[in-house]
Write a protein that binds this DNA or RNA. Structure first.
Lengths: 241, 241
DNA sequence: TTAATAGTGTCTATAAGACATTATATG
DNA sequence: CATATAATGTCTTATAGACACTATTAA
């Protein structure tokens, strides 16, 4: 990062922001968390829904990921979610307040882990169902584009990694796991093939206990290595006839 | 990106930079372009090698990608390379001059396309062979980490996409294509399987002419859709015996 | 004619897709 | 016993891997 006014560095700097795309599954549907833009004067996109985020505070945030985790905890109470970087968007035109670059993170949570934020007003924040490549309404800034990119990433990675597993609580049955893959992929997933795939990849290990219901109880499992997603040797590849 | 001093926005802002990891193949080896840090007083990491890049100029650069393309053209003369975003790195500590976030791009070029930059001194810029996860020496800033991440991305994507094809000129033989995959993956690639894979994925189409040499001439091919990489239905998966 | 590389064919291994069958719980 | 879902089994198909074989050029 070379040649710029040595010692002074007084040239104008863009704004630096962090936004977080937070996914969860509610009632068997993929949802994303949005917050309402404030309506004060001078505020861009007043009243519009937007991804949770904000400017980097160089006093408080030691790095970008810490900033993202902070915003995530603020909105959901969740401390260690699955979090990966999605990308960054920066241009002169995306924010009327000036040249802004935002670093976007991508989080996945079981809905059971979310605690309503204590100090927040109802109506300022909400879970929106994901339909196709968005939430069916225009968002603030370029957040439509960013959200579409996050959805594409999630669906794409669901074809060859274990990502959707992070939408479930710590223990789950194989049927629940299969179901959350089907929800993310938007198509049915074959049971037998799915089980072989998951078990032979060493994605899960048995946990104590079973899930009881109206029928035969199901074995509980947990992720063997929750720190990082597992890569399957092949993508899902349904026959096209 | 909400709630901050309305109207004023006079809080301190991080520096915003763009760096570019530029890969090419020289003499059958993967190489990356590095530039030497200036040695003036107040300059961080004087004399060290670093990724080409620099601060975003909000007057000149309309967005991050334009900034990356500008830096790429400046160093190599190349105008439309394969370019994708790698990620961003930002923290209080990665640059002694202050809180800095850099947006890193990832480019791939045929070495034949590179024109020596007109105004640059020799010794200020060089192609370094990639060995394992770096270039065998400590780089400026956190550029070791960034470079390792870029190498991992390239090798990883070579397992299931056509990315390495962007290291070749417009037309190439299937043997040349197979060879550049072997160079990137760091292991031999079977000829027959590779050809079926490439041809049935519709990655390439025949171009006019053949490559002549000491033996049977080889058909030339070109990428069918150079705008975006092709995804193969499976990863490479050599038997482990 | 030989060397060298281009290009094809054959066989096997792996894992997914489709779908049928068996197992085990509740009511 | 009926029902529901868990769990497993069977058969087919797609594609990679290994490697042998044929084709076509130059020297």
């Amino acid at each position: 990062m070379p040649k710029n006014p040595p010692s002074s560095q007084s040239f104008p700097r863009p704004f630096t922001a962090v936004d977080v795309v937070i996914f969860t599954v509610i009632d068997d549907q993929l949802h994303v968390l949005l917050v309402k833009r404030p309506s004060g004067s001078g505020e861009p996109y007043p009243g519009r829904w937007a991804l949770p985020g904000g400017y980097v505070d160089i006093e408080r945030d030691k790095d970008l990921q810490a900033c993202a985790l902070h915003k995530l905890k603020e909105k959901t109470g969740v401390v260690s979610p699955y979090l990966e970087q999605l990308g960054s968007w920066g241009s002169a035109s995306r924010d009327p307040r000036g040249w802004t670059a935002t670093h976007v993170y991508f989080a996945m949570l079981p809905h059971t882990a979310v605690k309503p934020a204590p100090g927040s007003q109802p109506g300022e924040m909400g879970w929106f169902q994901v339909v196709d490549d968005g939430v069916g309404q225009k968002l603030a800034f370029d957040h439509d584009t960013i959200l579409a990119s996050a959805i594409a990433r999630l669906r794409g990675k669901a074809e060859y990694t274990s990502l959707p597993a992070y939408l479930l609580p710590d223990t789950f049955t194989l049927s629940e796991l299969q179901h959350v893959f089907a929800v993310v992929l938007g198509r049915p997933v074959d049971k037998s093939g799915f089980r072989t795939r998951v078990l032979s990849a060493g994605l899960v290990e048995e946990a104590d206990g079973v899930r009881t219901g109206q029928s035969r109880p199901a074995q509980l499992y947990r992720l063997k290595m929750p720190q990082q997603p597992t890569f399957f040797p092949r993508t899902f590849n349904p026959r096209k006839d």
